[in-house]
Amino acid sequence: MSLSILAVDDSKTMRDMIALTLNAAGMTTTLAEDGVHWVDTLEAMDPPDAIISDINMPRLDGFGFIEAVRAREAFKGTPILVLTTESGADLKARARSAGASGWIVKPFDPEKLVRALKMVAG
């Protein structure tokens, strides 16, 4: 069964790269350029198998988005991978505190991203 992935990143280039990678791996990808819209509609949607989130985004950053997702009962068990160029320990600690499941640094290795998603959501 195809994994459904929601990827949130303000960079079109990154969204395209993620879609290219995940679609090639047979996953179904939903793309969003920021988390605000998705926070509004989370209640009405079925949780995806996993979520990928950037950190530096306009309007609502990745930390806020992850906290908002985790605040929904239906999404408490949804794996959330942070995908960002950042690698500072303090930022990782914040992401972990917000509820992130894991952290992958950009530029990402497509094979590694797919493997991580299969591992947390498969």
């Binding site: 303000d10 960079s11 280039t13 990154m14 530096n56 306009p58 960002t84 160029t85 530029p107």
Partner: peptide
């Protein structure tokens, strides 16, 4: 974010 996004894409 503008500089950050350029860096992120360039890295790819």
């Amino acid at each position: 974010r503008a500089v950050h996004s350029i860096k992120g894409g360039a890295g790819a």
